[in-house]
Design a protein around this nucleic acid. Structure first.
Lengths: 205, 205, 205, 205
DNA sequence: GATGAATGAGGTTTCATTCAT
DNA sequence: CATGAATGAAACCTCATTCAT
């Protein structure tokens, strides 16, 4: 019960999943064009026609992986919606929490992440979606007066996504940083900026 | 002058340059694998063998373009080195100037930019180089007490590169923003952060 | 039985063998460079990719044929080892028998012969191997006092191989002579020389 | 005066000869198909069109080299005609002298030799010609009773050519043997055979 | 549920050769 | 006497995809 009544048995589902996982690995590490269907099936211990039993084409299997990534990412980002009208500290924590969730997902799905951010033809579209969601979140805070009015929230949101992508690939996926500290550092940098307070700066001099 | 003194005449050099430009365009818009030598030469009004008169292979011509990009980018970034020991305002201007220079280059060479940042197999390596140069610049300012001591300048540098890349593709190359304002907004965001001053914030509430 | 147990079925093995035979024919008659993969597959009623289903490259299929030739030739030559310490007549017969065996093989595999002796890049190497084996055989007879001590058995062995190759192509493969008589004439010539006995010669004059 | 009144000047003749020599070297060492016109001209410090100023095609230049070889070889072999009606020792010396002359030529023109014997499409034809000339020589001696009547002089002549070719490549061209000793050993082997004295032979029988 | 066998389509690269100067 | 520039023709090889079993 609950099982969507397709025509597949357990073993077929198993082969399908295997192929999907291997394909994710190949796409993530070799890119689309250097990933060969022959390699995927061979790693799965299957033959080429078996591949077409489960997927319409090489492009189709990529699509499926991309969709997996996009769906989960959007879901998470929407959940991280800031609750309106709180104090500064709550905002800080709330943003950090949202970012942490996202980083955790990217960290848990390194192959999908590389696919969705880099390999997919719709990579740009996905990031745009992410930008839009983030921008929405931020704009309400700005309206509430927490963020500088002069900031173009579109630019800010794009910047956030740019940072997320870069840090994900250079610090997160290779284990140099964990989701929590990455989120923390990002938030500190963006909320408070790099400069020390004028007073402190004055003192130091 | 300055041309590597091969044994070719002016018309050959012309064909070579033409092929190089068309290839840049194709690589930038189609990616490496979907760029066909046949398309390049046909757009140049030549035949396939002519291509191999000037370049060793499809890979080699990409390399040449990538190297063009990397060389110029590194040169610019190194020139933008901050002069040590100045006041806050000077730092602000200096960073803005450096960023503007970089954005101008990226803006002037959209094909090379897409190639060096996305298409090149060494894209990551190039960005790493950029991160290293930027980090170096920033670290000295931090030592001088201008930037928060708690900031990991490696993360900051990576973030900067992430932002640069993203804004370049989403705002700069499509004409939505010019190099100057982009640099300005980036600097404001990163130096001062998003939050309004605590006092102001307090006031507002 | 004895077949390298790949994962292919009978019909595949059949195609493979067909290609191998046609390739042997083409290589033997056209040489390596003028043999086209397209011709081979077309003669086999297949398409080009089918070729690469069974062989890694044009070079690889040549290699396989060369190895077939070399292996069989070496095997035969080693079997023809002279039994030590017998009388002249036995030696005569034994050498003749060995040569006959070799000629029979060359006769039965005209394509491989042309390939191994002429087309193969390792043709010289193969002949050197043959020379070494023959020389070994002959040297023991020389030690036993049957052959002139002044003869350089290296030169003799090389000569034998030179003769074998030449007679194979000019008399054997075109059916002008059969293996037996060819071996017989070669042995007579080499064992007794061309000159008539001094006495007989004197008589005749 | 005396200069055949072609249309070429001294410097043209020089370039032509240079190309011819380089081509001989390339053909001899790389074979026909792996010799590239581009390599020849580049080694000569010329450009490709210059090649076609002096030769109609790649095939034509090979032809010219082959003809050079064939002409000289035939000339030498015809000169070595045995004078009729002499004694055994004279025959021995005469044959040795003829062979020495041939070996000397092959030794002096290693490139042409490899071309005429191996590279040329007419290699077989050339050797056949050689066989015919040699056979003619030998047959008269046989008629005169010097050589065994039972010997098929066609086979003998083919054998001679086979030996000459093989020894040339394995002993002569690489400097292991000089023309004289090679001729000497060949003659001894063929005239007297490998077996020790007839008496001993008779005894053993 | 899966395979053995095969193919259509196309891509990069090579090379001898030529024309205009 | 020679070159700069270019090409026609073709070869080898790869890959996603299918059909019959």
């Amino acid at each position: 019960m609950g099982q969507r009544g397709r025509k597949k048995g357990a073993i077929g589902e198993q082969s399908r999943t295997l192929l999907l996982n291997i394909a994710a690995d190949e796409f993530a590490h070799q890119g689309y064009f250097e990933t060969k269907v022959s390699t995927i099936v061979s790693r799965a211990g299957l033959t080429q026609p078996a591949f077409y039993l489960y997927f319409q084409s090489k492009e189709a299997i990529l699509q499926e992986l991309v969709e997996l990534f996009r769906a989960k990412l959007v879901e998470l980002t929407q959940k991280s919606r800031l609750e309106p009208g709180t104090d500064l500290q709550t905002i800080h924590q709330s943003i950090t929490a949202g970012l942490t969730t996202v980083f955790r997902f990217l960290h848990d799905e390194p192959n999908l992440t590389r696919i969705g951010f880099v390999v997919a033809p719709e990579a740009e579209e996905i990031k745009k979606q992410l930008v839009a969601l983030i921008k929405e979140n931020l704009t309400s805070e700005q309206t509430d007066g927490f963020f500088h009015a002069h900031l173009d929230m579109d630019i800010v949101a794009e910047s956030l996504v740019g940072i997320i992508e870069r840090l994900t690939f250079t610090k997160l996926l290779n284990g140099l940083k964990d989701p929590e500290s990455l989120a923390d550092e990002m938030v500190r940098l963006l909320l408070y900026g790099m400069l020390v307070d004028k007073e402190s700066a004055a003192e130091k001099r």
